[in-house]
């Protein structure tokens, strides 16, 4: 396919239609990878395809929280591209429109948040890991600096995203002898649709707590994911990399 750092590589991105997922799909494509992208939103996926030469990007509209959908997606990727070199487990959601103080929260929301932010990552990793053990690879999981900060009204989200940190470490240890690195990224505030729904005073409070003094663009995170997926990061594994303009430094 194309030229670049990821020429000849196959990258899989979940939750790919918008924001960080879409920015990372574009980054992988621009640097020569073939990419498989899944999202509930067919429209956003279609926008990714626009203007791209055919063959380099496989898209599937489907719900990542459905295990059967993920398995079908994985089969399609293998049929189309043969193997997976890079998996970016991006899909996740804070359920912020239903955020509540924990004493008022409900179990259906916890289950949704854990399902979409943690179990999807575990399932997708379970699908690609057996073949990656034979040929090496890169897995990058999506945590959040909210896991470290412990933002109020997001206890379920913090639990899911800290779960990603522990999952990342354990799987990194298991796959390291097989040439697979497993890392996580933990962004702070990023200008995405979820962010656009926040009230101006919440945005101002986040910005004030961020030494860099600005809200990240999705491309700021895509640059970190691309680094962890590249040969330059081959000795980095089990890590959670904060991309938050310095909001959490401990």
């Amino acid at each position: 396919m194309g030229e670049g750092r990821f020429a000849g590589k196959v990258a899989v991105v979940t939750g790919a239609a918008n924001g960080i997922g879409a920015a990372t799909v574009c980054r992988f494509l621009d640097e020569g990878a073939r990419v498989a992208a899944i999202d509930r939103e067919a429209e956003g996926l279609a926008a990714l395809l626009a203007g791209r030469p055919p063959g380099g990007l496989l898209t599937m509209a489907g719900d990542c929280t459905d295990a059967a959908v993920l398995a079908a997606f994985h089969s399609q990727v293998i049929a189309a591209f043969g193997a997976v070199d890079i998996l970016f487990n991006n899909v996740g959601q804070s359920g912020r429109e239903r955020a509540a103080e924990f004493h008022e929260s409900t179990e259906d929301v916890w289950r949704f948040v854990l399902e979409v932010s943690l179990l999807t990552t575990m399932r997708m990793t379970r699908l690609v890991a057996p073949a990656m053990r034979g040929r090496g690879g890169r897995i990058i999981n999506m945590s959040s600096d909210a896991a470290f900060v412990g933002d109020a009204r997001l206890a379920d989200y913090a639990a899911a995203k800290m779960g990603i940190v522990g999952f990342t470490r354990a799987v990194a240890r298991e796959l390291a002898p097989h040439g697979v690195t497993v890392n996580a990224v933990a962004p702070g505030a990023v200008r995405t649709r979820a962010h656009d729904q926040l009230s101006p005073d919440v945005v101002a409070r986040i910005r004030d707590a961020t030494p860099a003094g600005f809200i990240a663009e999705p491309e700021d995170v895509a640059g970190c994911v691309a680094f962890l997926a590249s040969d330059d990061a081959r000795y980095i594994t089990g890590q959670t990399l904060l991309i938050d303009g310095g909001r959490w430094m401990n």
Binding site: G223, D231, G238, G246, M249
Partner: peptide, 30 residues
């Protein structure tokens, strides 16, 4: 190690500050 130093010096890490990145082949699991 130079590869990680390059990344932290370049524009791809534009939103990364105040962090410590372990480039340790999986020892500290920081």
């Amino acid at each position: 190690i130079a590869a990680a130093i390059l990344w932290l010096t370049g524009d791809d890490s534009s939103y990364v500050t105040g962090t410590s990145i372990a480039v340790d082949g999986g020892r500290t699991f920081h």
